[in-house]
Simulated assay, not measured.
Amino acid sequence: MIATDATPVGGRWFDGRVEKVTWGQVLARRLRRLHVTDPSADLVGTAARLVGLHAQVASSAELIAAVRTPAYERGDIATALWTDRTLVKTWGMRGTLHLFPAAELPQLVAAWAQRQWPKVNAAWERYHGVNLAVLRQVTEIIGEVLPGKVLTREELLAEIAREVRAPGIEAAVRSGWGQMFKPAAAGGLLCSGPERDRNVTFTSPRTWLPDVPWDEQPDEHTAMAAVIERFLDVYGPATHEDFGRWWGTDAAKARRLFKEHAAVMVQVDIDGATCWSTPAALADLQQNKQNDDAVGVHLLPGFDPYVIAPLGHRAYTVPEGFIDRVSRAAGWISPVLLVDGVVRGVWSHELKNGTLTVAVEPSAKVTAATKKAATAAAGRYGELFDSDVRLTWG
């Protein structure tokens, strides 16, 4: 419901005048802000704008960065993570691995404090084999043993097993989902270290990132306001449900957060849909009314942020009946063919004998102009893999 002059929202009073924008304007701005139509100058800047590069599948993080950053070359992420240490790999939004600008980690850790601990019930305990008390003990031990060290999962397990005698602790720590490590990551006690003999490692970000100003870490309220503002600026306008889905919290908690931080947002009507924006983003939408259409053909990689967030935008970006091809089982997000801001197909790629074959499966018949533009878009992946490109249409 759109607020009226008698409706308080988060301590603010609205006079009933709600600015109106169109979905064409919104999607065009999202493409610009997500560096799809407005390229990024550098890798760390790309990660900052997107509030992290989704890295649950490592290759996706590289492709997400590469299609947005013309200067990006293969190996740049590894250099930023393990040599320059300007990026850090850790569990972030929705409990998934992301690559974040190292300098932004203190702010994110402060914001993660409100959801550091999972909702532990009997089902959760049966599934993971431990209870909340054990999880807290494991987190405390991680905070004690990791500073100044880089340990494999087995080495870290040995440190934990010295103190924790709970049944099932070894299986829980060895789990590839990292559930035992996520509270420590959210608390700024653990991040990924460089691979050692094909084994993942973990370390403390407070010693691994010595140049990060941890002493300037904001309080939880200030940090949360900044995160909401950044989400709405880059991914919005959006609803509290959209934010909750992206951040990894339930709708009720997201609603409370929006009310608590209402000072950073304004209400917007998008062709009849009520959403929230930042004042600056709304002004940008109004100033760019002449560019009110999302145009262009793009091949976006798997787990691309344009598709992941906000969930409420999918009704306008994914054709009816095609969502199961885009958002698949086990949370897998397909690479997509994007035409004028709307998903018009999915694609896959295979590198063999120096040729990169990009196979596109459109949701409907596409024009010759779209095929030509898709071929040009595939050229960026050819540059990345230093290969010829062959485009096929299913």
Rank of each mutant, 00 (worst) to 15 (best):
E220H: 06
A254V: 03
V234E: 08
E220S: 11
R230M: 02
V268W: 03
K259S: 05
D293W: 01
R314Y: 03
W214V: 01
L285Y: 12
C275N: 09
H240N: 12
M265P: 06
P218I: 03
G236R: 05
K259R: 08
F258I: 11
V297N: 04
T249K: 08
I228A: 12
F258Y: 14
D233Q: 10
R245F: 11
A254H: 08
H221Q: 06
D250L: 08
P301I: 10
E229V: 01
E229P: 00
T317Q: 02
H298Q: 04
A281S: 06
K253E: 14
Q287A: 15
T222P: 06
A309Y: 15
L232M: 07
E216K: 06
P310F: 05
V212I: 00
G244R: 15
D292W: 11
E260I: 00
D284I: 03
T239G: 09
A283F: 01
I270H: 02
G272S: 03
G248P: 08
D304R: 04
Q286L: 15
L232C: 07
V264H: 02
R256K: 15
H261D: 03
T239F: 04
D292T: 08
P301T: 05
I270D: 02
Q290G: 03
V266P: 13
V295G: 12
D293R: 10
Q287F: 05
F258P: 12
W214D: 02
H261N: 08
G248R: 07
R314G: 02
K289M: 12
L285N: 05
L311I: 09
D292N: 11
Q286H: 08
E220P: 05
D211Q: 10
A273H: 04
S277G: 05
P218W: 10
Q217C: 09
H298M: 02
W276N: 01
A262I: 01
D292M: 09
A225F: 01
A254I: 06
R255S: 15
Q286C: 09
P305L: 14
I270Q: 03
T317S: 07
A252S: 14
G296H: 11
V295Q: 14
L232H: 07
G248N: 05
V227M: 04
T249A: 13
K289A: 13
V266D: 15
A223W: 04
C275S: 10
D242K: 00
